[in-house]
Amino acid sequence: MIELVNLCVRYRRRQEPIIKGVHAKFKDKHLILGPNGSGKTTLFRAIAGLAPISSGRILIDGVNLDEIHNKPGVLAINLSEVHHVFHLNAYDHLRLFMDFTGGDLDLTVEMLEDLGLSISLLRKRKPWELSAGQRKAFSTVIALFSNAKHVLLDEPFEQLDPARKGRLIEYLKEYKGILLLNTHETWLLSTLKDWSTHLMFEGKLFGPMYAGNLVKVNLVIGDMPNAMLKFTISGKMYSLMQGKVGEPLSKLITLDRIYELSLS
């Protein structure tokens, strides 16, 4: 289980915190749904020990993150910045990470080929020479095959074509382990209905609710009575309501549109 206790994160001393006092527990499969710039990636970086924690704690299976060193199988993340080590081809990087984590290289290659990344391509290109979608798929597969109990997937569907998205979703549904997936794409709500979901805006987490329940709710600007969930963005109150008022959350397609709604 990953537990966040009053977590605040900022990169520079005088900067306003990017993550602002977040409390959460993640012990199954979770979606973190938020617009771009809401702090989703920074939250994942903090959980992976890559961002400075200005206050609060992160516990992984009850152990403080700062005390975790040299522990394979605890956590994996699909940020490409952690999978670029050398000025070498992607296949060498793949071999390296499977060696580091004890992952099965053959299975990983199989999955990558399923997502359209052949061995010949991986041998030919350096990780940063892959297209954005290929790069994301590459890092996602490394994270999933790292034999880790907790896997953090930052926007794994970004720039993937629909066919590959479908294959990846099927794999994620069957994955045995604790998965945290962040995205701004609301269409996932109807696909991953039984996943616990947090909404994230301006460095704060709201929820959790089941994705299946969020599919049916509408977004209303204002402080509405009987709202299932209320949150504030840029000083404006929003309510999630059942019924016919407001805009269906799943129809937004991307949560980035929430800012457009506030302008209309």
Partner: peptide
Amino acid sequence: AARYITKFTK
């Protein structure tokens, strides 16, 4: 990468 490797790999 170095920080991640030394924390979450062997």
